[in-house]
Amino acid sequence: TGIVNVSSSLNVRSSASTSSKVIGSLSGNTKVTIVGEEGAFYKIEYKGSHGYVAKEYI
């Protein structure tokens, strides 16, 4: 489990790349469930599926 550490919002992406499609966003202080790691990204549970967020903001 981690907490989103941004002042505005954090993009949730379809894969572990900054060039991948943005599938949603999370507000600061949102609790997320981390299910894996891939490079500079965490794989998280997101809306019944999975998404990826940059580690530096969790």
Rank of each mutant, 00 (worst) to 15 (best):
T1Y: 08
T1V: 15
T1C: 14
T1I: 14
G2D: 04
G2W: 05
G2K: 06
G2V: 09
G2Q: 06
I3T: 10
I3Y: 13
I3F: 10
V4Q: 04
V4G: 05
V4H: 05
V4N: 04
V4P: 04
V4A: 05
N5V: 13
N5Y: 04
N5K: 11
N5R: 13
V6H: 12
V6L: 09
V6G: 11
V6P: 08
V6N: 10
V6I: 14
S7H: 13
S7V: 12
S7A: 13
S7Y: 05
S7G: 12
S8T: 14
S8R: 11
S8L: 10
S8P: 13
S9L: 11
S9A: 12
S9E: 12
S9Q: 11
L10S: 05
L10E: 03
L10R: 04
L10V: 15
N11G: 09
N11S: 12
N11A: 15
N11L: 15
V12D: 01
V12C: 02
V12T: 01
V12N: 00
V12S: 00
V12P: 00
V12W: 01
R13L: 15
R13Y: 15
S14Q: 14
S14L: 14
S14I: 14
S14G: 08
S14V: 13
S15V: 07
S15K: 11
S15E: 15
S15P: 01
S15D: 10
S15R: 12
S15Y: 07
S15W: 07
S15N: 09
A16P: 15
A16D: 03
A16L: 04
A16F: 04
A16I: 05
S17L: 07
S17G: 08
S17H: 11
S17M: 07
T18M: 15
T18Q: 13
T18E: 14
T18D: 14
T18R: 12
S19K: 12
S19P: 06
S19A: 12
S19M: 13
S20Q: 02
S20E: 03
S20F: 07
S20N: 03
K21E: 15
K21G: 09
K21Y: 08
K21I: 11
K21P: 15
K21A: 15
K21H: 11
V22Q: 04
V22D: 04
V22C: 07
V22S: 07
I23V: 07
I23D: 01
I23W: 03
I23F: 03
I23Y: 03
G24L: 04
G24C: 05
G24R: 02
G24D: 03
G24H: 02
S25A: 13
S25H: 15
S25I: 15
S25M: 15
L26N: 01
L26D: 00
L26K: 01
S27V: 14
S27Y: 10
S27L: 13
S27G: 11
S27C: 12
S27T: 12
G28S: 14
G28Q: 13
G28W: 11
G28T: 12
G28N: 15
N29C: 13
N29Y: 14
N29W: 14
N29E: 08
T30Y: 06
T30I: 08
T30P: 03
T30W: 07
K31F: 13
K31M: 14
K31Q: 12
K31N: 09
K31T: 13
K31D: 05
V32P: 02
V32F: 05
V32E: 00
V32R: 00
T33I: 15
T33S: 09
T33N: 11
I34S: 00
I34F: 03
I34D: 00
I34N: 00
V35T: 07
V35A: 05
V35K: 06
V35P: 00
V35G: 02
G36D: 08
G36Q: 05
G36F: 04
G36K: 07
G36E: 06
G36I: 03
G36L: 04
E37Y: 06
E37N: 06
E37W: 08
E37I: 10
E37T: 08
E38T: 08
E38G: 03
E38A: 08
E38H: 08
E38R: 06
G39I: 03
G39E: 08
A40N: 14
A40H: 11
A40F: 10
A40Y: 09
A40Q: 13
F41G: 00
F41P: 00
F41C: 04
Y42T: 02
Y42D: 01
K43N: 03
K43H: 06
K43R: 10
K43C: 09
K43D: 03
K43F: 06
K43P: 01
I44A: 00
I44Y: 00
I44K: 00
I44P: 01
E45P: 04
E45C: 11
E45K: 08
E45Y: 09
E45V: 14
E45Q: 09
E45T: 08
E45R: 08
Y46L: 03
Y46R: 00
Y46D: 01
Y46N: 01
Y46T: 02
K47E: 14
G48Y: 06
G48S: 08
G48K: 06
G48E: 10
G48I: 03
G48R: 05
G48M: 06
S49C: 09
S49M: 14
S49Y: 10
S49G: 15
H50C: 08
H50P: 06
H50T: 10
H50K: 05
H50G: 04
H50N: 07
G51N: 01
G51V: 03
G51S: 02
G51M: 02
G51Y: 04
Y52G: 00
Y52S: 00
Y52M: 01
Y52P: 00
Y52L: 01
Y52W: 12
Y52T: 00
Y52I: 01
V53K: 00
V53R: 00
V53Q: 00
V53C: 04
V53S: 01
V53E: 00
A54K: 10
A54E: 15
A54Y: 14
A54R: 13
A54Q: 15
A54I: 12
K55Y: 02
K55E: 01
K55C: 04
K55D: 01
K55G: 02
E56A: 11
E56L: 10
E56H: 12
E56P: 05
Y57T: 06
Y57I: 04
Y57A: 11
Y57N: 09
Y57G: 13
I58C: 03
